[in-house]
Structures are given as C-alpha cells and as structure tokens.
Design a protein around this nucleic acid. Structure first.
Lengths: 271, 271
DNA sequence: ACTTGCAGTTCCATTCAATGGAACTTAGTT
DNA sequence: AACTAAGTTCCATTGAATGGAACTGCAAGT
C-alpha cells in the first residue's frame, strides 16, 4: 500500500494567474478543476475553485457534458470526468514516447530486482509518473482501459446490450458494424437479437470465438437495482486451456461478483 | 499477446457529421484526430482527417500545444498528445465510478480462476474497457501513470533536476515547494543544490526516506545523446527489506537500462 | 540558378459564439 | 409563508475565433 499509494499530488498548483481568455483555455481549466476535486463535484464546488462567473460556468459544464468530457450524474447532481477523456487518455499514454520503448526494460528490471520500478518525466517542474511495475501481480493497469471494442462480438458487449431497455438496445443494434472477424462472428441484427434474448434469459453471455479465433469468454452485466446497465464483467481464456462449458460453470460466481460491484457502486453514490 | 492485444479499436468512428461550431468542440475534435492517428501526426495528417480549414487548424494546434494538451516535436515536426492529458486521464480513470469499487472483486476473480478478467462499460454503443486483470505479473498499469509528485524529494525528480541545463535547473529549484514530508526531506534550495551536484558526479540519485518514512529508492536520469533529460527510472524498496548500499549496487544496471531506453527512443524518432 | 509545388503561417476585415450582470426558477430551510 | 441558497436562462454587448487570401520557407524538379 505505502509503496503504491505514496504518490498523491501534494504540491500546490503552480497557481500563477491562469489566462482563461479563450473558451478553450476555460474549458480545460474547468476540466482541471473537476479533476482536481478528486471525486464527483457539484456545481458549487467547481464555482468555488474557479474565477469564472456562474453563468459562464453553467454553460461550460453543460457543454463539456455534451462533448462527453464530463458526466453529470442526475442522482447526485454531480459532475465527474467523462469517458471520452479516458479514451484520449489511453491514446496519450500509449504515445508518450518513453512508455513504449521503456516497457521491456522496465519489465526486466522489475523481475531482476524483485522491486517496484517507476518511469517518470518532468512536467512543469514536477514529476509526472509514466509507468510502474511491481513484482507481485496485484494491480490495476491501463493496457486495456481506454481501449474500445465492438459490442456485437464481445462477451461484455453482448452482456450489456442484452439488458438495455428495448429502445436503447435497438438503437445500439442499429449502430453495430457487424464486421466479420471470425467464422463465428454474428453478422446480422437478427442473429444478434436472437442471441441477446438467450443471454437475457440465461443471465450471462459467451464470446464463442466471435471476435478472435480460439479466444472465448463468459460475461455478465453489472446491473443497478433499478435494472440500469452499469457495465459488464468477463473472464477470458482460450479454447486451448478451457471450454465454454467450463466458463459457464463460472457464471454464478461472476453474477455474484457483478452484484457485489453494483452494491458497492450504490454505496458509493450514497456515501 | 493475443489475449491482451486483441482490443484495437476497429469499428469506424460513429462518423455522423460532427458539429464543430464552438471552439471547444473543435478543440476536442482536433485532439481526437491526433489521438486517432496513432502515432505522432504532422499538420498535413491532421488536416486530411479534419474538415477544418488550414488557418483554423494551424491556430488550433498551436493553441492546444500552449495548453499542454499537445506536444509539438520540433525535430520531427509532428504533434502528439500532451502530458496534461495524461494527468486528466488518471483523474478520469480513478473517478470512473465502477473502477474503484470493482477493483477488489476483479482481483479476487482473477486469482480464483487464474484467467484474464475485464471490466467494461458502454460508451456510444461501443465497449469501453475500464480495467483488466491478468493472472501473471506481466503488465503495464495505470495506477501511477498520470500522478504527479514533487521533484525535490523523490529519486526520479532529483535525478532529472540534476541533469537539467543550469538555467532550467535553477528555475525548477525556484519552483519547488520544499514542504517537509519526513525528517530527511531537503527543505532548502541550498541543500537541494548540493545534493544535485553530488548526483551529477555520481550519475544516480537516492531517495533516502525523503518523501515517506522507510521508503528508499535509487534513480537514474534517461538522457538523450545530446544530454537532454528525457525522463528517469527508479527502483524502490523499503528500509525493512533493503538498504541504500544495496540500491547503490544496482545503479550500474539502472544506468545501462536508461541508456537502452534512450537508444530505443532515438531509434523510434528516426523510424 | 531558376522555377514550381507543397506545407504551413500570418493577415485582417467580418461574424457569430461566448460573455456576464441581472432576473428568474427551483429546492431546501427556518 | 417567507427566506436563503443553488443553479439556470435571458439578452444586449463584445471580442475571440474565423477563413479566404496572401505570404513565407523549403525541397524537389528542370
């Protein structure tokens, strides 16, 4: 814990009067404020931390929400950073010049010494950590987060589609590309609709080599108490080491895990 | 490889005529284009992928660079996503509601089944992966990347400061907060300057419990052939399991690793 | 050496998006 | 019911952003 959690940003913002003339500066400033707040921020929180007038902030926040850079949670009346930012994030991190080339070196060091390895660079006279390797497997990571994938031919995608409200589900189906990736890929809306019905009954989804040969997975949706689709969870393996039957046997555990996450998410909303 | 690398975004952009009226929409659009390009993009690359007129793009790109959202590499005359985005990224990911609460559940599942576990949500009718756990330790991660830390009391920070050009170094020193974190923290510019001189001679830096008690590390700068500071690399441990002497013994290996990274980075620039 | 073409920047008059003070709505409080 | 706080909408004003065109710099072709 201490080894990995000791990196909180502590030093003050370089503060010196930001410009905030152009709308673009203002937009990023607002994002910084929301990000800096740590958790979901109310309008007033943002206002307190920003010199911008109320009217301007109000419009800016809603515009940023429209852009997908912020998410406004109706329930808690709070803004948090949006998914579009995570996508950009991923791309930024991937293209951070050192990250890519340093990866194998960092792996080797971590293994050789059995200790935590950091890669950093300087940004505005502070240390910006770019990568980290710890010897034990613990850990969240960022190789997938930020990536996007097709919904119609992945386990998590189908698990979520299946439990969408009818209206949304049809719109989502209409937006799928139905590109064939493997012989098993579902390539028509009808086929997908049928599979989704099965998933809805069964409560979990498979990916039976639909996206990539030999890759199979079982996935469950994470559903809010009201039934809203929060996300999905999957366990992936290959046909070489396991089978759909074996994966199906895991489904109950996965469902329990999804329920746990939904509960925890609910707690977080209230807390 | 196939299990972790199968997530390239393949489906086309939802394409449908973006608005691009407000400057803010345009700004994010440009970021998306640069991000979508994969690697560093030249002006012409961006122009080809965007309906915006040359003049507008030119200004926009430079403004985004000024904001720190893009980095313009003089050498290759290319734009890539900036470090500010990585900072925001980190905050966005941390605050993605599911990530936090799902973490322990994902850990447990990965361990229990010994298989890859994914957490995803739906974004614009596609799957957006939020987290992933693989049973084996491999892996890049994103718990530190994006975090910022003080330069004057971390190994990587001091390693980089030490090798900055005099002018930059003095400015950087002037910008440090010199907040005391532990009894060992350097709290004056003079003390730091002295230590940096030692580091410059010796070629590597220690963090001798200066940021957090019992945490020690050894760090080396990553220097470009011309001497420019590209970044830094560190190995961290605790006083309970190791010592500065033991860390010092690793310095030559670290230096070699840093040199490898610098070389690889150089290759990448040319290629 | 001269020319042509391409890549990118600067100019500047025009315009429309952004602005912000104030009025207004909504929700919560005494 | 009156009051306070939180947030949104209004609208006349303004200046930031715009983009066509002219300009610069560079590299390849003749």
């Amino acid at each position: 814990m201490s080894l990995s959690e000791d990196l909180k940003s502590e030093e003050n913002e370089s503060s010196s009067e930001l410009d905030l003339t152009s709308p673009i500066s203002r937009a990023f400033h607002v994002l910084d404020v929301v990000a800096g707040f740590g958790g979901p921020a109310r309008f007033a929180d943002v206002q307190k931390a920003s010199p911008l007038p109320k009217a301007t902030l109000s419009r800016m926040l809603r515009q940023l929400e429209g852009e997908g850079m912020l998410i406004f949670d109706e329930g808690s009346q709070r803004y948090r950073l949006g998914l579009r930012l995570i996508r950009l994030a991923h791309a930024a991190w991937e293209s951070a010049s050192l990250v890519e080339v340093a990866r194998p070196v960092i792996d080797a060091l971590a293994e050789r010494f059995g200790m935590t390895v950091h890669l950093a660079c300087l940004d505005a006279f502070q240390v910006l950590y770019l990568d980290k390797r710890v010897p034990r497997p613990i850990i969240r990571m960022f190789s997938s987060p930020g990536r996007i994938g097709p919904a119609y031919c992945t386990g998590v995608g189908k698990a979520m589609l299946a439990f969408l409200p009818d209206r949304d589900r049809e719109e989502a189906i209409a937006r799928q590309s139905f590109t064939r990736h493997t012989p098993h890929t579902l390539t028509t809306p009808e086929a997908l609709r049928a599979v989704l019905a099965t998933i809805r009954e069964r409560g979990f989804a498979f990916d039976d080599e639909e996206h990539e040969n030999t890759i199979i997975c079982v996935a469950v949706p994470i559903l809010a108490p009201g039934g809203a689709v929060l996300g999905a969870l999957s366990v992936t393996t290959t046909t070489h080491v396991s089978s759909l039957d074996a994966l199906a046997a895991m489904a109950p555990v996965l469902k329990g895990a999804a329920a746990d996450i939904a509960t925890a998410a609910r707690m977080q909303m209230l807390g």
